[in-house]
Design a protein around this nucleic acid. Structure first.
Lengths: 207, 207
DNA sequence: CTTTTATGAATGAAGG
DNA sequence: CCTTCATTCATAAAAG
């Protein structure tokens, strides 16, 4: 089946002669696999949340059963278990890499072409692990960021804002009605037990 | 989803108490286990979806008592792609829409004809607000990015621990994230649990 | 340890 | 189809 293909993802041993002692941490799934599962479980989690909300609504009229019902199936799912396995790690530029990137960015070359990306990546590879996508993303983000900062940072009295929404000049965009459900759900996704309710007996907590 | 190789440049583990460092790669799950896992999640997805449908109908009969029920659970999550009060202009596929799209993408390799788009849009409309343009864009983006990723991460040499599987050379990297439920639900869920307790416990933590 | 911020990455949509 | 942009999401890092 198709899950066999493994990405490289070689983790380096930080300082040689490390542990190898007692509790050794091993990755049981590749990041890719984890991400796939996480995504799928997110679907499940989302639907579950819908059910939670629905039950709240349904029982709000008959308050007697409302609170208990919500807690019962919501809490155990979300609060369950420890975290481990792994999350996806993201690239973090080394100071040296960052310096070089900033320098290139300041050179006014606002056009990071494909070829340029390759060159930069090659150069930065001498200072740490990096990929072309990292460079590409960095420039994309950098440009967008400075653009956004420009319109927020200066205390310009350009009140030509026709929108009814007014945002503070020294504050970045705020979303009052933003609900953070995604955080809760996805942050705990890896903690969900991969089991059917019927299979509970075949699998219990570790140690 | 698709990421090119993600270099764990500084994948430091907060190794407390001589714990060995970063991610050592061991394959602890067989293909069969992964397949079982996939099916399990598919079962969950199916059950959840059916529950949602069921509760929807339950709600509809209670509509006389509480009118606001529909809004509470449906609007924030299912119709998240639509516009909430302040309006979000960018379409966001619901998880269920995503699954359907992914499935179609895997099947009808590549050629989203006009007629096909129409059909897909109609089908997806049952799971949330969507337009043909959304579908079109989605397939365009999907294809382009899938292609780009493939060329960005070709330098893969699998881990020595992992038996590599041959994949079709002229085939795009098979996308493993398809977990469509189909009608697994009709089969006995007991058959879908893990056969090896070791693997199950490994899923939780290995520390 | 919890909350906040900074920023790498993902993605819908537009342009060519 | 391919590239680019704007917005959003998730997480490492910083602040409390």
């Amino acid at each position: 089946m198709e899950w066999e293909k493994q990405p490289p993802q070689q983790a380096e041993e930080p300082s040689g002669g490390g542990g190898a002692g007692g509790g050794m941490f091993v990755k049981v799934m590749t990041d890719e696999q984890m991400e796939v599962l996480r995504k799928q479980i997110a679907v499940y989690a989302t639907i579950c949340e819908q059910l939670v909300e629905l039950h709240k609504s349904l029982t709000s009229q008959n308050e007697l059963a409302g609170v208990r019902l919500g807690n019962l199936y919501c809490d155990p799912l979300i609060t369950s278990g420890a975290h481990k396995i792994t999350g996806r790690q993201r690239w973090t530029p080394t100071p040296m890499q960052l310096q070089i990137l900033e320098r290139i960015f300041d050179q006014g070359i606002g056009t990071p072409s494909k070829q340029k990306i390759k060159e930069i990546t090659t150069e930065l590879s001498q200072h740490g692990q990096i990929s072309e996508t990292n460079v590409y993303n960095w420039f994309q983000n950098r440009r967008a960021r400075s653009k956004r900062k420009q319109q927020a940072a200066p205390a310009n009295n350009a009140e030509s804002e026709v929108e009814t929404e007014v945002e503070s000049p020294n504050e970045k965009k705020t979303k009052p009605e933003e609900f953070q459900a995604h955080h809760i759900l996805s942050s705990r996704t890896e903690d969900l037990c991969f089991q059917t309710p019927q299979a509970s007996s075949s699998m219990h907590s570790v140690d």
